[in-house]
Design a protein around this nucleic acid. Structure first.
Lengths: 114, 114
DNA sequence: CATTTGCGATACCATTTGGTACTATATAAT
DNA sequence: ATTATATAGTACCAAATGGTATCGCAAATG
């Protein structure tokens, strides 16, 4: 129980990972990738209340994955793609590690993409 | 409240995202990237009990991110890099949005593939 | 053999999470 | 002016999460 890793993590990284951990939120991210949407529009697509969707949007906003623009009484939710940077940066830690073992992974992705 | 996205998600994707959502588990993944480790070895590095570490390892295993090899009374935990495939696959959905930083990572992966 | 060591499993606890219902407020529409 | 709409905010709830403490078991070690 000695010297714990004291690596100070940026909260942005944790908030982004946390935001993406929920399937509903990942669905929202994909929907917003197609087009900006209001809370009401998003709610139409899910089987839950607007309040629940709003909570998810708050978590996504905390994670830096979306921004909100108020327009009249509407709030337009917009995807903020660079919010994913901290997450992908974390993955880049494995660059050195990504050898033959990970080529398998890359091939798997490519196979799916066809 | 009409036609909800019925997109059948692979539990592997959800389990992997969930596994990576916790900072302790991400630390474990990075440690295992450096070398295979037993539970006791991992526990030395954290300020928590072995039982807690074991729980995290179970979640990581559910996410397909590690495998365990029993050797005598020891259990060697090994990183399973291709377990990250579902996660990176999900990110590939956003190809159109990736800025240079993210593209760099993607290129790094592709470079290693050659 | 007896003892130590590495681990699994379970019960238990506090906090967080994902959801609802309800109320309130500001903007748009009639 | 009144009503309808889009959203915020709060209180509340059940379940999941992250942790501990404890017990038990199998494998090394003396």
């Amino acid at each position: 129980m000695v010297s714990q890793m004291v690596k100070q993590m940026q909260p942005q990284t944790q908030n982004a990972f946390r935001a993406l951990a929920d399937p509903t939120r990942r669905d929202i991210v994909q929907m917003l990738a197609a087009q900006d949407m209001t809370i009401a529009q998003l709610t139409e697509r899910f089987d839950m209340t607007r309040a629940a969707v709003k909570k998810h949007l708050t978590v996504l906003s905390d994670g830096g994955l979306i921004t909100v623009e108020t327009r009249g009484r509407e709030r337009i939710n917009r995807l903020e793609p660079q919010g994913m940077a901290p997450v992908l940066d974390w993955f880049s830690y494995f660059d050195q590690f990504w050898d033959e073992r990970l080529n398998k992974l890359k091939e798997a992705i490519e196979r799916k993409q066809k």
